[in-house]
Design a protein around this nucleic acid. Sequence first.
DNA 1: TACAATGATTAGCT
DNA 2: AGCTAATCATTGTA
Length: 328
Amino acid sequence: MTKPMLSPFCDYFWFFLTLPVLSIRGIQEEGPPDDQLMRLDNMLLAEGVCRPGKQGRGAAAAAASTATPGGCPNDNGLEHSDYRAKLSQIRQIYHSELEKYEQACREFTTHVTNLLREQSRIRPISPKEIERMVGVIHGKFSSIQMQLKQSTCEAVMTLRSRLLDARRKRQNFSKQATEVLNEYFYSHLSNPYPSEEAKEELARKGGITVSQVSNWFGNKRIRYKKNMGKFQEEATIYTAKTAVDSPKVRGLGSQASCPSMPSSSASGPFPLTSSGGALTALQTLASLRPAPGVGGLLSQARGGWRGKRRSTASLVGDPSSVTPDASN
DNA sequence: TACAATGATTAGCT
DNA sequence: AGCTAATCATTGTA
């Protein structure tokens, strides 16, 4: 590029124009700038930073600040208010910067064009040359824009991982979910391993995911086994509950296929769950000893249910536990 | 604020 | 793949 004869003021801008744009991280390695720009625009759109049809076109910060973040599936209110507030800040900064860049680009283009026109009195300057200069200026500014977009994307991603990370933002399950899970657990105490279908049903009823159901049962089994005493009261409550409302729970589990004998009532290691109700439960509560004839199963549970791994043979004498999912 | 409860993650096992 | 056991990290509570 031949340096045109410009004023000292323009020397400064000439320096700007000749700055390499290669320093923009990732752009060169990730394909043509247009593709990269499109990806960034899509991402900003998905994150709710810009709005459809307005990507990079100077959407007003004020208007944008009230927009609902589009890319946040969990954006359901108070628990993410912090996220939303910070996203809104990012959005404002993004749009005001973008606006500044665009204005600077317009002003600089006008300025350079005027200077070239002035120069044309001294030496011949073709319209093509002016066009080329304008193109170069726009190219520089769009690469700056790209950098801005990239930084914005990074900021949003960091914010998301910090504030919306499921593990860090663990929430206790709703009462409904806990009840549903506990009802199943205590009514299937002899074999508290819900089948895939039962897990799905529990998940649906509790408004949680299947993997959350699996986690819950994993935790529950281990914690129950470790400290059965602590759970006695809870067991009594749910036993009484399911005794009254047994069809509800029975409907979930395959073990409940024995209508007259809830799985854990006579067979399980924890006779608290007898459909006979609170009396047996309280008796056991007092002694913490199994009802006659169930000692073997109690020790089995104390050593670990070893649920799905349990062979059908070990369930002999426990007809209610011989279920489709137990025999898997 | 300390501590218990609890949901999620991980390593190792079958 | 699904389980246990240990552990982490957050939430709830006295």
